[in-house]
Computed example of a mutant assay.
Amino acid sequence: MLLEDIQLQPLQKIELLDPWSRKVSGTASRSLLAGAMILHFDHTALVCTSPLRFMRCQSGTTIAKPDGIGMASLGYRITLTKPEECPQWHPAGLCKEVIRPTQWLAGTIQDRSAVHVLLHAGLDQQREGAWALKLRFVGGSYCLTWRPDLDGCIEFAPARQQHTIDSITVSSPTEAFGWLHPAYQHPFVVDESCWHSAKISDWPWPLRKALQSHHEPERFYRETLSRALGARYRQTPSLRQRLLALRYPVQINDVPDGLIQEVAAALRKDSLAGLAR
Protein backbone atom coordinates (compact mmCIF):
# COMPACT_ATOMS: atom_id res chain seq x y z
CA MET A 1 0.00 0.00 0.00
CA LEU A 2 1.47 3.36 -1.03
CA LEU A 3 0.10 6.16 1.14
CA GLU A 4 2.05 8.54 -1.07
CA ASP A 5 -0.74 7.98 -3.63
CA ILE A 6 -3.11 10.22 -1.66
CA GLN A 7 -0.68 13.02 -0.82
CA LEU A 8 -1.19 16.48 -2.34
CA GLN A 9 -4.79 15.58 -3.16
CA PRO A 10 -7.69 17.69 -1.84
CA LEU A 11 -10.18 15.96 0.42
CA GLN A 12 -13.63 16.11 -1.19
CA LYS A 13 -15.86 14.38 1.37
CA ILE A 14 -15.95 11.90 4.26
CA GLU A 15 -18.48 9.07 4.36
CA LEU A 16 -19.37 7.57 7.74
CA LEU A 17 -20.88 4.06 7.57
CA ASP A 18 -22.74 2.89 10.67
CA PRO A 19 -21.90 6.23 12.37
CA TRP A 20 -21.80 7.07 16.07
CA SER A 21 -24.35 9.43 17.58
CA ARG A 22 -25.05 12.61 15.58
CA LYS A 23 -24.16 14.58 18.71
CA VAL A 24 -20.53 13.63 18.12
CA SER A 25 -20.09 13.65 14.35
CA GLY A 26 -20.10 16.63 12.02
CA THR A 27 -18.89 19.24 14.52
CA ALA A 28 -15.63 21.20 14.26
CA SER A 29 -12.88 20.16 16.70
CA ARG A 30 -14.77 17.00 17.68
CA SER A 31 -14.37 13.38 16.67
CA LEU A 32 -15.99 11.63 13.78
CA LEU A 33 -16.77 8.05 14.82
CA ALA A 34 -18.12 5.22 12.68
CA GLY A 35 -17.89 1.50 12.05
CA ALA A 36 -16.34 2.28 8.67
CA MET A 37 -15.13 5.48 7.06
CA ILE A 38 -14.30 6.47 3.50
CA LEU A 39 -12.17 9.53 2.79
CA HIS A 40 -12.68 10.68 -0.80
CA PHE A 41 -9.76 12.48 -2.39
CA ASP A 42 -9.54 13.72 -5.99
CA HIS A 43 -8.34 10.47 -7.56
CA THR A 44 -8.23 8.00 -4.66
CA ALA A 45 -10.46 6.90 -1.78
CA LEU A 46 -9.13 5.68 1.55
CA VAL A 47 -11.47 3.03 3.03
CA CYS A 48 -11.16 2.22 6.76
CA THR A 49 -13.14 -0.71 8.23
CA SER A 50 -13.44 -1.95 11.80
CA PRO A 51 -12.73 -5.65 12.51
CA LEU A 52 -15.27 -5.54 15.33
CA ARG A 53 -18.10 -4.29 13.10
CA PHE A 54 -17.26 -6.10 9.86
CA MET A 55 -16.32 -9.75 10.35
CA ARG A 56 -14.70 -10.04 6.93
CA CYS A 57 -11.87 -7.90 8.36
CA GLN A 58 -10.57 -9.97 11.27
CA SER A 59 -7.28 -8.13 11.70
CA GLY A 60 -5.92 -4.65 11.21
CA THR A 61 -3.60 -3.50 8.46
CA THR A 62 0.09 -3.84 9.34
CA ILE A 63 2.55 -1.18 8.16
CA ALA A 64 6.30 -0.80 8.67
CA LYS A 65 7.16 1.49 11.59
CA PRO A 66 8.63 4.91 10.80
CA ASP A 67 12.05 3.87 12.15
CA GLY A 68 12.03 0.85 9.84
CA ILE A 69 12.36 -1.57 12.77
CA GLY A 70 9.41 -3.95 12.98
CA MET A 71 5.77 -3.61 11.95
CA ALA A 72 2.83 -1.69 13.46
CA SER A 73 -0.83 -2.77 13.38
CA LEU A 74 -3.44 -0.04 13.00
CA GLY A 75 -6.13 -2.24 14.57
CA TYR A 76 -8.46 -1.42 11.66
CA ARG A 77 -8.17 -2.24 7.97
CA ILE A 78 -7.29 0.35 5.34
CA THR A 79 -7.72 -0.04 1.59
CA LEU A 80 -6.91 2.37 -1.22
CA THR A 81 -9.38 2.23 -4.08
CA LYS A 82 -10.83 4.32 -6.89
CA PRO A 83 -13.68 6.66 -5.89
CA GLU A 84 -16.05 5.01 -8.38
CA GLU A 85 -15.54 1.64 -6.65
CA CYS A 86 -16.66 2.90 -3.22
CA PRO A 87 -20.35 1.85 -3.52
CA GLN A 88 -19.30 -1.78 -3.03
CA TRP A 89 -18.28 -0.85 0.53
CA HIS A 90 -21.84 0.23 1.40
CA PRO A 91 -23.68 -2.83 2.83
CA ALA A 92 -27.43 -2.77 2.18
CA GLY A 93 -29.43 -1.17 4.97
CA LEU A 94 -26.38 0.35 6.69
CA CYS A 95 -26.80 3.92 7.89
CA LYS A 96 -24.58 6.43 6.09
CA GLU A 97 -23.68 10.05 6.79
CA VAL A 98 -21.69 12.35 4.50
CA ILE A 99 -19.45 15.03 5.98
CA ARG A 100 -18.03 17.85 3.88
CA PRO A 101 -14.49 18.99 4.75
CA THR A 102 -15.65 22.56 5.27
CA GLN A 103 -18.08 21.30 7.94
CA TRP A 104 -15.40 19.76 10.07
CA LEU A 105 -11.74 20.16 9.08
CA ALA A 106 -12.20 23.94 8.96
CA GLY A 107 -11.93 24.06 12.76
CA THR A 108 -8.25 25.04 12.47
CA ILE A 109 -8.32 26.73 9.07
CA GLN A 110 -9.12 30.40 8.49
CA ASP A 111 -10.79 29.99 5.11
CA ARG A 112 -13.83 27.74 5.74
CA SER A 113 -14.49 27.47 1.98
CA ALA A 114 -11.02 26.09 1.28
CA VAL A 115 -10.36 22.62 -0.15
CA HIS A 116 -8.05 20.88 2.30
CA VAL A 117 -4.97 19.37 0.68
CA LEU A 118 -3.33 16.33 2.23
CA LEU A 119 0.33 17.22 2.75
CA HIS A 120 1.55 14.03 4.40
CA ALA A 121 0.31 10.61 5.52
CA GLY A 122 2.25 8.62 8.12
CA LEU A 123 2.04 6.70 11.39
CA ASP A 124 1.59 8.10 14.88
CA GLN A 125 1.92 6.17 18.14
CA GLN A 126 -1.08 6.69 20.42
CA ARG A 127 -1.72 5.93 24.06
CA GLU A 128 -1.31 2.34 25.25
CA GLY A 129 1.11 1.69 22.41
CA ALA A 130 -1.56 1.71 19.68
CA TRP A 131 -0.75 3.11 16.25
CA ALA A 132 -2.85 5.41 14.08
CA LEU A 133 -2.73 6.83 10.59
CA LYS A 134 -1.79 10.52 10.87
CA LEU A 135 -2.91 12.85 8.09
CA ARG A 136 -1.44 16.36 7.92
CA PHE A 137 -3.61 18.84 6.03
CA VAL A 138 -3.18 22.54 5.37
CA GLY A 139 -3.94 23.96 8.80
CA GLY A 140 -3.70 20.92 11.04
CA SER A 141 -3.01 17.23 11.69
CA TYR A 142 -5.71 14.58 12.18
CA CYS A 143 -5.51 10.93 13.24
CA LEU A 144 -7.47 7.89 12.11
CA THR A 145 -7.54 5.63 15.15
CA TRP A 146 -9.26 2.34 15.94
CA ARG A 147 -11.32 2.58 19.14
CA PRO A 148 -12.28 -0.92 20.36
CA ASP A 149 -13.45 0.73 23.61
CA LEU A 150 -15.97 2.85 21.67
CA ASP A 151 -17.91 -0.05 20.16
CA GLY A 152 -15.14 -0.81 17.69
CA CYS A 153 -15.46 2.55 15.93
CA ILE A 154 -12.85 4.19 13.77
CA GLU A 155 -12.19 7.73 14.98
CA PHE A 156 -11.10 10.66 12.82
CA ALA A 157 -10.08 13.47 15.14
CA PRO A 158 -7.61 16.33 15.55
CA ALA A 159 -4.29 14.95 16.80
CA ARG A 160 -4.33 14.29 20.57
CA GLN A 161 -8.03 15.21 20.88
CA GLN A 162 -9.74 11.83 21.11
CA HIS A 163 -13.27 11.33 22.37
CA THR A 164 -13.45 9.81 25.87
CA ILE A 165 -16.15 8.22 28.02
CA ASP A 166 -16.15 6.58 31.45
CA SER A 167 -19.50 4.76 31.33
CA ILE A 168 -22.24 3.73 28.90
CA THR A 169 -25.88 4.76 29.29
CA VAL A 170 -28.41 3.54 26.73
CA SER A 171 -31.92 5.04 26.71
CA SER A 172 -33.10 3.93 23.26
CA PRO A 173 -32.02 1.68 20.36
CA THR A 174 -31.19 4.71 18.19
CA GLU A 175 -28.29 5.88 20.37
CA ALA A 176 -24.64 4.86 20.43
CA PHE A 177 -24.55 1.30 21.82
CA GLY A 178 -28.28 1.14 20.99
CA TRP A 179 -27.92 -2.53 19.98
CA LEU A 180 -27.78 -3.27 23.74
CA HIS A 181 -31.36 -2.02 24.23
CA PRO A 182 -34.16 -4.63 24.35
CA ALA A 183 -36.10 -2.70 21.68
CA TYR A 184 -33.27 -2.98 19.13
CA GLN A 185 -34.79 -4.57 16.04
CA HIS A 186 -32.84 -7.70 15.12
CA PRO A 187 -34.78 -11.00 14.79
CA PHE A 188 -33.82 -14.06 16.82
CA VAL A 189 -35.47 -17.33 17.82
CA VAL A 190 -36.50 -18.53 21.29
CA ASP A 191 -38.30 -21.87 21.69
CA GLU A 192 -39.06 -22.01 17.95
CA SER A 193 -40.71 -18.56 18.04
CA CYS A 194 -39.25 -15.64 16.09
CA TRP A 195 -38.91 -12.43 18.10
CA HIS A 196 -38.37 -9.09 16.33
CA SER A 197 -36.84 -7.61 19.48
CA ALA A 198 -36.64 -8.31 23.21
CA LYS A 199 -39.05 -5.57 24.33
CA ILE A 200 -42.22 -6.76 26.05
CA SER A 201 -44.55 -5.83 23.17
CA ASP A 202 -42.58 -8.24 20.94
CA TRP A 203 -42.80 -11.18 23.37
CA PRO A 204 -45.13 -14.03 22.37
CA TRP A 205 -48.61 -13.53 23.81
CA PRO A 206 -48.39 -16.42 26.35
CA LEU A 207 -45.29 -14.83 27.92
CA ARG A 208 -46.87 -11.39 28.09
CA LYS A 209 -49.93 -12.89 29.74
CA ALA A 210 -47.78 -14.86 32.18
CA LEU A 211 -45.89 -11.68 33.12
CA GLN A 212 -49.15 -9.90 33.96
CA SER A 213 -50.31 -12.67 36.31
CA HIS A 214 -47.00 -13.85 37.76
CA HIS A 215 -46.61 -13.62 41.55
CA GLU A 216 -43.02 -12.37 41.06
CA PRO A 217 -43.20 -10.29 37.89
CA GLU A 218 -39.75 -8.70 38.32
CA ARG A 219 -38.05 -12.09 38.57
CA PHE A 220 -40.07 -13.45 35.63
CA TYR A 221 -39.20 -10.38 33.54
CA ARG A 222 -35.50 -10.71 34.32
CA GLU A 223 -35.40 -14.43 33.52
CA THR A 224 -37.31 -14.02 30.26
CA LEU A 225 -35.26 -11.03 29.14
CA SER A 226 -32.07 -12.94 29.97
CA ARG A 227 -33.16 -15.82 27.70
CA ALA A 228 -34.12 -13.39 24.92
CA LEU A 229 -30.88 -11.38 25.02
CA GLY A 230 -28.83 -14.56 25.30
CA ALA A 231 -30.52 -15.87 22.15
CA ARG A 232 -30.00 -12.58 20.31
CA TYR A 233 -26.25 -12.53 20.91
CA ARG A 234 -25.69 -16.26 20.42
CA GLN A 235 -27.46 -16.14 17.07
CA THR A 236 -25.80 -12.92 15.86
CA PRO A 237 -21.98 -13.27 15.90
CA SER A 238 -21.38 -9.63 14.96
CA LEU A 239 -23.38 -8.41 17.98
CA ARG A 240 -21.87 -11.07 20.23
CA GLN A 241 -18.32 -9.90 19.57
CA ARG A 242 -19.35 -6.28 20.22
CA LEU A 243 -20.93 -7.29 23.53
CA LEU A 244 -17.82 -9.17 24.63
CA ALA A 245 -15.67 -6.14 23.76
CA LEU A 246 -17.44 -3.79 26.23
CA ARG A 247 -14.96 -2.05 28.53
CA TYR A 248 -17.09 0.35 30.58
CA PRO A 249 -19.88 0.10 33.16
CA VAL A 250 -23.23 -0.20 31.37
CA GLN A 251 -26.71 1.03 32.32
CA ILE A 252 -29.57 0.28 29.91
CA ASN A 253 -33.19 1.38 30.15
CA ASP A 254 -35.56 -1.57 30.71
CA VAL A 255 -32.67 -3.92 31.54
CA PRO A 256 -32.24 -4.88 35.22
CA ASP A 257 -28.91 -3.99 36.80
CA GLY A 258 -26.20 -6.55 36.13
CA LEU A 259 -28.21 -8.53 33.57
CA ILE A 260 -26.18 -7.60 30.49
CA GLN A 261 -22.99 -8.54 32.39
CA GLU A 262 -24.53 -11.92 33.24
CA VAL A 263 -25.37 -12.53 29.58
CA ALA A 264 -21.83 -11.59 28.53
CA ALA A 265 -20.35 -13.90 31.21
CA ALA A 266 -22.47 -16.80 29.94
CA LEU A 267 -21.31 -16.15 26.37
CA ARG A 268 -17.66 -16.13 27.46
CA LYS A 269 -18.21 -19.40 29.30
CA ASP A 270 -19.73 -20.92 26.17
CA SER A 271 -16.75 -19.72 24.11
CA LEU A 272 -14.24 -21.22 26.54
CA ALA A 273 -16.17 -24.50 26.60
CA GLY A 274 -16.10 -24.60 22.80
CA LEU A 275 -12.34 -24.06 22.73
CA ALA A 276 -11.82 -26.86 25.26
CA ARG A 277 -13.57 -29.44 23.10
Rank of each mutant, 00 (worst) to 15 (best):
Q9C: 07
L11P: 05
E15C: 05
K23C: 04
A28V: 08
S31F: 01
I38D: 02
F41E: 03
L46M: 13
F54V: 01
S59D: 11
I63S: 09
D67Q: 15
S73W: 09
S73A: 14
E84L: 11
E85C: 08
C86K: 05
W89K: 04
W89C: 04
L94K: 06
V98L: 08
R100M: 12
G107C: 13
D111W: 05
D111N: 15
H116M: 12
H120L: 14
A121F: 09
R127L: 12
W131K: 06
W131H: 10
K134Y: 09
L135S: 10
S141M: 08
S141I: 06
Y142A: 05
P148G: 06
I154F: 05
F156C: 07
A159R: 15
Q162K: 06
I165Y: 02
P173S: 09
E175Y: 07
G178L: 07
W179Y: 15
L180M: 13
Y184H: 14
Y184W: 14
Q185W: 08
H186V: 09
P187V: 03
D191G: 00
D191S: 13
W195Y: 14
S201A: 14
R219Q: 10
T224D: 01
A228M: 09
G230L: 09
A231L: 01
A231D: 00
Y233P: 01
Q235T: 05
A245C: 02
V250N: 06
V250D: 00
I252P: 05
I252K: 02
D254G: 04
V255S: 00
G258L: 12
L267V: 01
R268K: 13
L272V: 15
L272C: 12
L275F: 11
